[in-house]
Amino acid sequence: MSADPDVRKRILRAELRERRQVMSDLERGHATEGFTARLQELVGTTGAESLSCYLSLPTEPNTRPFVNWAEARGIRVLFPITREDGLLDWTVGEEQTESVGMHGVPHAHGELLGPMAINDVDLILVPAAAIDRTGMRLGWGRGYFDKTLGSMGKCPPVYAVVFDAEFVESVPRERHDQAVNGVVTPTRIIAF
């Protein structure tokens, strides 16, 4: 395998994307139940009253049942909105609707709060392709979350949400990559 981290990342992302695409509906359903339960546990242990969470694509760990649970309990949830400049805006999605944004990413509709809004949350939940045993996150290659996390002065706990097989021994890393504080899978929560 190439020593170039960028090439190694692209190869690993392709393998992980393929694995996600061939998951059965039954496997996906069981994983969603597990994610929802683990994320509820995480909110309970952190005492988070506000959080940021992505809206999942069909092949990603399904965050919607958890988001519905959190909102029903009065937890303020910020959703990311991708921008042309590589930054993220945020919204609480008060319109309760969504559309497809840049790169095919689901966007909640609501008042745009700007990139700084994330500074006020108690917990950040991010998507990932894989997480390694040191907490290093392999994203999908656009750098939105790396830029966001790298620019925060005081960052609350950041947990990546991945399927069990995506918690791996190591991932290729580059200087700009941001580690996370923990990982949530359908079967466990691990803090680093």
Rank of each mutant, 00 (worst) to 15 (best):
E27D: 11
G29E: 14
F35W: 04
T36N: 10
A37H: 11
L39P: 01
L42R: 05
V43Y: 02
T46G: 05
G47I: 14
A48D: 04
A48T: 02
A48Y: 04
E49I: 14
E49L: 15
S50Q: 10
S52K: 13
S52A: 12
C53V: 12
C53K: 09
Y54R: 08
P58K: 02
E60N: 04
P61M: 07
T63E: 12
V67N: 05
N68G: 04
W69Y: 04
A70N: 03
E71W: 06
R73T: 01
R76S: 02
L78S: 00
P80H: 04
T82P: 09
T82V: 14
L87Q: 05
L88G: 04
W90Q: 11
G93R: 04
E95C: 11
T97W: 07
S99C: 08
V100P: 00
G101Y: 12
H103Q: 13
H103Y: 15
V105P: 07
P106E: 08
P106N: 07
A108K: 15
H109T: 06
G110I: 13
E111A: 11
E111W: 11
G114A: 12
P115C: 03
D122G: 06
L123K: 05
P127A: 12
A129I: 14
A129P: 12
A129Y: 13
R133P: 01
T134H: 15
M136Q: 10
R137W: 06
G141S: 05
G141P: 00
R142V: 00
K147Y: 02
T148I: 05
L149C: 01
L149N: 02
G150T: 09
K154A: 04
C155S: 00
P156H: 03
A160P: 11
V161H: 00
V162G: 03
F163D: 07
D164A: 07
D164I: 04
A165T: 04
A165F: 14
